[in-house]
Amino acid sequence: MAMIELSHLSKTYGSGENAVHALDDVSLEIEQGEIFGIIGLSGAGKSTLVRCINLLETPTSGTVTVDGKTMTSLNGKALREARRNIGMIFQGFDLLMQRTALENVRFPLELAHVPKAEANERAKELLKTVGLEGREGAYPAQLSGGMKQRVAIARALASNPKVLLCDEATSALDPTTTESILELLKELNRTLGVTVVVITHEMRVVERICSRVAIIADSHIAEQGEVQEVFLHPQTEAAKKLVLPSRAGKLEGFAEAEARDAADPCRGELIRLAFDGMTTDRPVIADMILSCGAPVSIVYADTRSIEGKLYGHTVLQLPGDEATADKLKRWLRDQGISYTKEVQ
């Protein structure tokens, strides 16, 4: 059975004409022990979605089940107990500024009335786990962003939760720190078996640690599946927008280029090559140019590593001369490299 099950979840703010549908009939299943990514642009509803999981937001309709408990049927004390089974970290870290690192980690244990000595022991241990041994007495103001997030992670894990929700947890951090926090999350997932839900607007976060991903756009789940599958073959417009990040920006630029190209016989059609992990190791474009004896220009290129394999997209501009262009395209087909004509 799935660890987290969202079924026909809707959330509407306001009513009548002013109603805003933040979530519209969202259904998702997140398996125990996986790292699941929810990606979307700002305003897509992803934050509302994650906050519905621990009922910080009450869904307008639909049910949320976590670890076999129907969250949406709970309230008061039962809900608070159930929330202790779900850790959460935030973009702004949200630490108690007047408490030391140790006291912050101890906080959820205090809430659960764990004896102080035991709570201190556990908090120390957790700080060690997240790599902050020796910083127990530091106040958040004395720690860097990455360290603050580590304290927050330790705090979220204090009550031994089955699920860890990460709401844009690395969005306020620089790339190096982001990398180290993601590494930590991955390790905690591996060693503790905690199910991790990652909310982000950044592709690289999902690529780096998630096994499955859901793309949320306009309050809907546009697409979901294995990260490789979704990122390599995005089906929906929303997914393409996220996965092929230059697309939105390129449209204007390319339109200009196209107008110019119509007048310039040297510039021909644009094609997009999709690399699928094996071909990226080969110097495909150099091979093509050498064997066809014709130049192409690389208009856009983006390759990335997903779970150890290389994937990517490259947009080429073929020469205006049709015979040469055909020759190049034939070469690509012969090599088994798929391409699509790039259209506006």
Binding site: N54, R83, R84, I86, M88, P108, A156
Partner: peptide, 9 residues
Amino acid sequence: EASQAMGAS
């Protein structure tokens, strides 16, 4: 909010 998420009354 973080405190609420941790189950604080």
